[in-house]
Design a protein around this nucleic acid. Sequence first.
RNA 1: GCGGCUGUAGCUCAGUGGAUAGAGCGCUUCCCUCCGGAGGAAGAGGCCGUGGGUUCGAAUCCCACCAGCCGUGCCA
Length: 636
Amino acid sequence: MLRNDLQTLISVALEALIAEGKLPEAVRVVPVEVSDTKSPDHGDFACNFAMVASKKAAMNPRAIGELLASTLATKTSVFAGVEIAGPGFVNLRLQPTYISAYLEGILQAGQAGVAQLPPTGEKVNIEFVSVNPNGPITVGSGRGASFGDALSRVFKSAGIEVHKEYYINDGVNSEQMRLFAESVRHFYRQSLGLESVFPDKGYRGEYVQQVAARLMELEGDSQGDAEASWFQSKSQDLMIERQRNDLGLFGVTFDTWFSEQSLHDSGEVLRCVEELKSKGVADEEPYRTKLKLGKGGVVEEVIKEAQTDQMEEDGDEAEGVTVEDSQASSTNKTLWLRSTKFGDDMDRVIRRKDGRLTYIASDIAYHKDKFNRPAGASKLYTVLGPDHHGYIGRLTAVLAALLRKGPDTDENNQEALNEAKAKLDVVIFQLVRFLKDGKPAPMRKRDGNIYELRDLIEELGAAAAPNSSKEEQKIKGRDVARFFYLMRSHDTAMDFDIDLATKQSDDNPVFYVQYAHARICSVIDKAKEAGIQLGDQVNSSVLVHARELALIKKILDLKTEVERISKDHGVHRLTTYAIELARTYHNFYDVCRVVQPDEPELSKARLALCEAARMALSGTLDLLGISAPRRLDREA
RNA sequence: GCGGCUGUAGCUCAGUGGAUAGAGCGCUUCCCUCCGGAGGAAGAGGCCGUGGGUUCGAAUCCCACCAGCCGUGCCA
């Protein structure tokens, strides 16, 4: 890459200066950074080394800059000029042919290589969406889905092996699932004309009735007297299938759909619980530790409270799972995970007095198991919505408890906690609000219906391509929805402006980017008609125009973006990059005519540049999970 | 009480500790002998919430405060 190559050149120059004794050894630890310049007056790139190293070298920054500049200036094939400016910037003005020569590398690497970094050997598991199997994928989950999927794509592009995972909360005795199943049962019986009472606090949404209708289709009318457990298992499967379809419509797929219940069935949960007991991080002593935390998470007070019967009623453990195993239910004591040893603000219940296990118990087994996908995974990412903020502490504590080695000492516990923090990254995305006619649109309606992701996709698709087929509308809707979700940092609350998203015109940034791609394709076609072909030998050195060079530099930036985003998860910057790349292309197009039959060499080189820009645009859109159409037609 | 997020142009928002803080929309102009005008160029518009600190240098990092959104405690 261009930037890396410049960094290397500077590092080599610095080494030479150190060897000659002109710079002290101490500056070796100062990192070399190459940054963009704001104004073309400052050259192509700038290096701030002189200012940063000034203190270490005990030298005036301009003096360091002079040394560096005069050394670099001898590389006349690379630099057209190296100047000191301002407080000590070394401004690098590159030879146009040095920049344009990079075009050949881009073309050789091809579409697959335009954003691809070499393998790092790192392996990660990323879990996202994971909504309960008692409802559809909502527009709220859409944010997590687009973010998690795009982040996975960026990881892969950054040379990291990725396993995408969806966790199904299908523990058999969850209260929510029971209610959901009874609601389905009610609608099923009702349609048979059987007597039925709608369950208290049951689910009324249209999708519940659709599940009942689908059951009728698949199983006929013979199940009117079937038990709730039958309905639970069947409706759950149908709901998961629907979730999978909706996510597929959105372009999101998973490598594994992992069943919570499978961990109970295999006995893995109980094995893990025993393991924690034998390690001494879980016990049945009748007390709970709570930490009163002050500012910055400092422990102000440790409260050790005796267990009362009332504690058993705590709401946060309400979604328990009954274990049929007699040995588990035979005990009459609460089993505590001493998570306060690992940074949690209170101990958590693993198993209640009556033998029911809480979801913490499954989380323990699940997190242990996750490291197997991909085999030897070194890091787990969990993408959660804004209401799950409280999970960070307890999930980290769960993992730390698993990882703890040696006896129960503060040092060992702290070390385990540090390791857990390094291996588990819980990424919380913030709230998304939908605006329609300038007003917030309700996510959950009074009649029990839910604003579903599939509704959003259809709505956006129909607006973007009113005369197209349903299939094309779905693609359009998906493209617009994903782009809008990803325009803002996952870390900040966003407004999704449906009115703007439904515009098929200038204002809509998705089409601005896709238009640039379509425009390039059109130019390539036109060139072909004029007898100028891609794939011919290209002399890139004829590309010396400022707009041509700016475009090449912008294309090369894609890998820099990928590398950075793989570290800080700022996926939204890809949308900014896509817009900037499109703009840089339009700038080029406006001034540099590609197809010029009387200038065959220049035409070929510019055509090659068009293809490189096309690959970069297409590659960026692919990272976002958005299509790169060859044509874009405005519809009435 | 504790935690998270936000505060940048009239509006919606970008912004890697760096030089004169950017884009889109809106507003005022301009560019089709033309490869797709869903395009391009120019202009007006800013105490970067407030006050301290760190730094050669802060919209960016740290602390305090103000305002807003969201989550979640304790008193049991």
